[in-house]
């Protein structure tokens, strides 16, 4: 199966491209990037052809594309790819506006192509096992979740609202939200959020606290802050404390690491050794395209998490809880 990559604006593109390039059932043949230098370098790195023109890439003999452009450009690129009947793996968040996400989902349906949203957290072994434990009933009924998706401040287009759609809330709420929807088959009912910019001199929020009430009555809090200091031993974290009637489960998704005390560079770093979530995500997408089955993470999954993000921003603006509207 031949796969193309649309833009390396998001760093995850490199991890995904690497998996595709080494995959037994796939080939990375085509790359487009509006930054020609970046695109050409990536093409050289992954032994693929670089196309100056996206439309030219999309008329090549490729089966699928991976869209890793800036958040606000996902819509344009997904619509184009769908029109050319390419199956699509789209980096999260699906879009920066709910209307855009709806249009993208519709277009992919109209052109009968797969639209999968990249939520690799679902593929982290510790998260999968957590889901199994929850479903086994061992923890009883889960009444509350205290979750974090912290990160370092990524800079670049991530802090330009026109391109990213927002700061840390846009970047980090969706991973937890998607994992919880998947684990509990539950939707957010209402949200209250406080955001602010307190760590960096940037024009988007870099910290906050989100409180949600789910349809089931479960209470969820999410801390999506870019609050990891520069000396933090890794990029960030995904943690969840699940409070059940029969016990409490704490999962630290990236705990499978060794700590490296590096005198040569004067720093401490985590050396992860867990099964690679990106490899599982890409393999799942390839399998989905190959077999024609429904995507395991659909455009609607992307939409539902975007609705929560939008609700959170609205709540932060009016300082009141907001009911989540599901379109």
């Amino acid at each position: 199966m031949k796969i193309g990559v649309i833009s390396f604006a998001h760093l995850h593109a490199y991890a995904y491209a690497d998996v595709v390039a080494n995959h037994p059932n796939a080939e990375l043949t085509a790359i487009w990037d509006d930054d020609a230098t970046r695109g050409q370098e990536a093409a050289a790195q992954f032994n693929a052809h670089f196309y100056q023109d996206l439309d030219t890439l999309l008329t090549q003999d490729i089966d699928a594309v991976i869209v890793c452009s800036e958040n606000a450009r996902h819509k344009e690129h997904v619509l184009k790819a769908a029109q050319q009947k390419k199956h699509i793996l789209c980096e999260k968040p699906i879009a920066t506006e709910v209307a855009d996400a709806l249009e993208m989902i519709q277009a992919c349906e109209d052109h009968s192509v797969t639209l999968q949203v990249a939520y690799p957290v679902r593929f982290i072994p510790a998260i999968r096992e957590t889901k199994d434990i929850i479903q086994s009933g061992e923890m009883g009924e889960i009444i509350a979740v205290n979750a974090t998706n912290h990160g370092q401040m990524p800079g670049g287009w991530f802090v330009e609202k026109e391109l990213s759609g927002g700061g840390s809330a846009t970047d980090h709420i969706v991973h937890i939200m998607d994992a919880l929807r998947w684990m509990f088959q539950d939707e957010a009912k209402s949200v209250y959020a406080e955001f602010d910019t307190r760590f960096y001199d940037i024009a988007v929020e870099d910290c906050g606290s989100v409180l949600l009430e789910m349809e089931s009555g479960m209470v969820v809090s999410i801390d999506p802050s870019w609050s990891r200091p520069n000396v933090y031993p890794t990029w960030g974290n995904v943690t969840m404390k699940l409070i059940g009637t029969e016990g409490t489960l704490y999962v630290d998704a990236f705990k499978q690491h060794a700590l490296y005390y590096n005198d040569k560079e004067g720093k401490l770093s985590e050396q992860p050794w867990a099964d690679d979530m990106n490899e599982q995500l890409i393999s799942d997408f390839i399998d989905c395209v190959k077999t024609g089955r429904k995507p395991s993470i659909s455009g609607v999954d992307g939409l539902r998490t975007l609705e929560v993000v939008k609700g959170a921003y609205a709540s932060n603006d009016i300082k009141k809880p907001v009911q989540i509207e599901h379109t």
Partner: peptide, 17 residues
């Protein structure tokens, strides 16, 4: 937010954030 419930054993469980 606050949630109050009980374990299967009848023991109370309570959580607030």
């Amino acid at each position: 937010k606050q949630v109050k419930t009980t374990r299967a054993s009848g023991q109370s469980v309570e959580y607030a954030v």
